[in-house]
Design a protein around this nucleic acid. Structure first.
Lengths: 225, 225
DNA sequence: CGTTCATTGAAACGCTTGTTTGAAAAAATA
DNA sequence: TATTTTTTCAAACAAGCGTTTCAATGAACG
């Protein structure tokens, strides 16, 4: 034997990390109920008991994964929003700048995660559509604060618009964003091959413009009455 | 004993019907994987074996339910579209009329199903986000034809717009519609009670205007270049 | 080297899942 | 009423689930 030959598939990353990454992929593809501890263990090249050893339970594993994926996006959102505010001096950011700060960070993360590119888009969208109740709780924890911030920012940008109209249109804009993220993988089929889903930036930019237009036109026609 | 007293909870409808309705409610609330044959049987006041007897399998039961719920909506869509075309004579229907015919029938069905009002909205949206592959197949069967028709209609309404732009914006509009349907039950929480989800018509009308505005503005700015 | 601690591994634990069975009941048909 | 067909029912089936157990293994340290 020559000096302990390297094991054929020696894991480069810690088991914990591989488990989280495997969980992210499988959750995005199959949802919470479709994700099994056995499939996670297999995908991560780990033992079945490893996930319970490192995280305690399936719920805790998924929560840890979601927290790790979502928190950076939210931080980036706030950063971009602050950037826009400082760039404009005392002027409130425009609707386009506001929705850019909301949606663009998702595109950045999608582009960063080179492996199975659109997995993250599905993952983000799935956190909103999963029927499992503990995910709803986590979801509220992560997003209710963000929602409040964006409502306030839009109120400053449209000082003449009625309160409930801003709420309604922000709700529609966020829903559209999530729907588009969830449906994006169907773009090619839906358009019979005319449009392809390869370019992350193009899709994100189109989405930003779409919800910005829907928001502005809706708000303007409501405050014109 | 006095002339056979009526059984306390004597089923008024056939078991088959009760099973389908129970399936619809539970599928909307818990998704495909969260729906169990036992929960269906319990909700429908039927025996566990009844569903397999009447439908053969869980998959067949869910497919039957989806077909029954979705087909009427699609027929109504085509009817409304034809109505708009005849009303306009030789002129192509406007974007608003087109998206009205696409979205309004959902509102009609939601209003019709008085019990658990928003269940149908969730159900429609869930057929698009469920990760189970056989649902995707059914989905394609039901919607690819409709998608083609709407693409053609929008091409007539915007003859100067590039092909791929119409595809892109129709995709965004449909995605927004689905996202809004899926997220609607969160409206109250999301807006901290400012907006409530009681009025079906208001939500549907807002949604139609939102996607119409997003579509028109996006198409116009793309063909202006 | 010997000891301690963290991690892995294979097997098993209850439990729930979709589905099947065969007899009982009900309904339909003659 | 007698016979056939359809429908219900309780019980069981194998398979898959999350989780636990405990011995084997690895790494870290004195």
């Amino acid at each position: 034997m020559i000096s302990s030959p390297p094991k054929p598939a020696k894991p480069k990353f810690a088991t914990r990390r591989r488990l989280i990454d495997a969980t992210a992929r499988l959750f995005a593809e199959h949802g919470y109920n479709g994700l099994t501890m056995r499939s996670v263990a297999h995908e991560a090249d780990a033992n079945l008991a490893a996930a319970n050893y490192h995280f305690g339970s399936k719920d805790a594993l998924v929560l840890e994964m979601l927290s790790e994926r979502i928190q950076p996006i939210n931080k980036r959102r706030i950063a971009l929003l602050e950037e826009a505010k400082q760039r404009n001096g005392k002027l409130a950011p425009s609707a386009h700048e506001i929705f850019h700060s909301l949606i663009f960070p998702i595109g950045e993360e999608i582009a960063r995660s080179s492996k199975s590119r659109w997995s993250l888009a599905q993952l983000v969208a799935r956190t909103f559509t999963e029927p499992v109740c503990f995910i709803e709780r986590m979801h509220q924890k992560f997003f209710s604060q963000i929602a409040k911030i964006y409502y306030q920012e839009l109120s400053l940008a449209f000082p003449n618009a009625p309160t409930n109209e801003i709420h309604w249109h922000l709700h529609l804009a966020v829903s559209s964003m999530l729907g588009a993220l969830a449906q994006h993988r169907r773009l090619r089929d839906f358009t019979e091959g005319v449009c392809s889903e390869e370019e992350v930036g193009e899709m994100i930019n189109r989405l930003i413009r779409f919800v910005t237009n829907g928001f502005i036109m809706g708000i303007n026609s409501s405050s014109a009455e």
